[in-house]
Every structure is written in C-alpha cells, then in structure tokens.
C-alpha cells in the first residue's frame, strides 16, 4: 500500500533558508539546495519550498533555487509563496518544480486553480489552506495573506470547492497549532481529510515523532509536514518512520549514511 509521506518544509527568503537551521555537517546552513539534498538523502519523501521573499528580485532568485534543486533532488518538491498567475506557475514548473502551491491567490482568484489544473494537470496544483478555529461559531475559517486576514470561507466548504476546481492535493495548516509543538490539530485534519477525495498534507504543530504517529493513525491524512523540528534536528525523519513502522503504518524505508 501507499506509504505515509513525511515532508520537511523550507522557508526561503531571497534565496536563503530562514528560521535558522542548526544542522551539523552542512557547509552552508542557509543554502536551500544543500539542505534539501540532505533531506533527500536522509529519508524525506517530498519537500516543500515556501518563498517568503517580499521583493521582485527575491522571487527571481527563487527560480534559480528551484532550477538547482531540480537538478540535484531525487524526490519530488512543491514550491509555494507569492504565486499569483498562470505565468508564475509556468516559471516555477518549467524550472523543475513538481507542484505549485496556491494560497491567497487561490482565494482571491479561484479560476487560477481551474486554469492551472487544465494547463498542467491537477497533480501539479496544491492548494494551501491556513485554518483557524472560531470557538464562538464552532467553525474553522480560511485565512489569507500569511494568516493576517480572515475570509468568510468555512475551511470544509473551501476544501471541497478547490477540489471541484481541480486541486490535486491540499496542504492544510492549523494556525492554532502552528509553532506549538504539541501535536497536529487532529479534529481539523480529520474533518478535512474525510471531506475531500484528494490527498491531504497535515501541517502545524508537530513536536515529536509520536505526533506523526497520532496524525496518521487517527486521521486519513496522506502526508505530514514540519519545519523547525527537522531543521533543528529535534526529530529525525527516519526516527519518525521507525516509530510509524512499529505502529503498523507503511513508510518508505531508505538506508541513510
């Protein structure tokens, strides 16, 4: 059966990895391609690069990063952040990314999902959803602009809608859990992965290998993503996989150095 995917996420600004990385053995801890290659060799199933550059130059630099990553990596990778048009998608995919991830632009302009899926195939189009719970209304709302703006969209409705438009995968981030390191938002991940027919990547809250076991055994999520716990070597990818395997989940096993 298909394996559960473990996906490290790299935040990249102006061509450099941000959110400090403390890997032993990296010549240049800020080099996204070197870090990505390390993850490739140490068991990552896939990678996500999130471009948080604010400037035009920064975004251009990202294209170079993507091209270099595509020439080095033996696993698939997704690029998100600041993609606003089919032209932006074309540039990133031509540079060698396997998928593009749309967030704010998808909410502002849902046709972009449709257009992208038609041009490049649904499997290339990931819709990233930033979700935050509203206790009063008992609803998760979709947020945009890096979590700064709340929309009127209920996360479950939006997730179903983007799949209808042609999204091939959903990258679901819990804003409530993000950075908390006390586990994924199981009820959110369960609700969304039950509601849609495409694979879901759970994100936000991973603090230990046990958290991955929990999200995979208690929800239908296909993949789980984390950033800092991998970057700071608090949790090792193969350690996560070993624990998953012990609990009866299928994972891709590789022998690391």
């Amino acid at each position: 059966m298909i394996t559960k995917r473990i996906i490290p996420c790299l935040d990249v600004k102006d061509g450099r990895v941000v959110k400090g990385v403390s890997f032993v053995g990296l010549r240049d801890a800020g080099d996204p391609v070197e870090l990505a290659s390390l993850y490739d060799q140490t068991g990552a199933d896939e990678l996500v690069f999130l471009d948080i550059s604010a400037s035009h130059e920064g975004r251009k630099t990202m294209i170079d990063v993507v091209r270099l990553a595509a020439s080095k990596l033996t696993i698939p990778f997704t690029v998100g952040g600041g993609i606003r048009s089919v032209e932006d998608m074309t540039k990133i995919l031509r540079a060698g990314a396997d998928k593009v991830s749309l967030n704010t632009a998808a909410v502002l302009n849902p046709e972009l999902i449709q257009e992208g899926a038609r041009r490049f195939g649904a499997q290339c189009i990931v819709v990233a959803i930033d979700a935050k719970y509203d206790a009063k209304e008992d609803i998760w709302f979709v947020y945009t602009h890096g979590g700064r703006e709340r929309t009127d969209w209920n996360v479950l409705d939006w997730a179903k809608h983007v799949v209808e438009l042609g999204a091939g995968e959903i990258l679901l981030t819990s804003m409530d859990q993000d950075g908390q390191k006390n586990g994924f938002d199981l009820s959110l991940v369960r609700a969304v992965s039950d509601a849609v027919t495409v694979p879901v990547i759970a994100s936000g809250g991973a603090g230990s290998a046990e958290d991955f076991v929990e999200v995979f055994t208690k929800t239908k999520t296909s993949a789980a993503l984390a950033a800092s716990i991998f970057h700071y070597e608090e949790v090792d990818i193969m350690e996560v996989k070993a624990l998953l395997r012990e609990r009866g989940e299928e994972v891709r096993w590789i022998s690391t150095r």
């Binding site: 394996t3 649904a122 849609v196 694979p199 891709r252």
Partner: peptide, 11 residues
C-alpha cells in the same frame, strides 16, 4: 475508496 490522484511512494 482512496484519495485520487494516487500520489506518493508505493511498493
């Protein structure tokens, strides 16, 4: 009755 696309690592 599984996610489609069939996406990811399989044996």
């Amino acid at each position: 009755d599984l996610p489609i696309p069939h996406m990811g690592w399989n044996w």
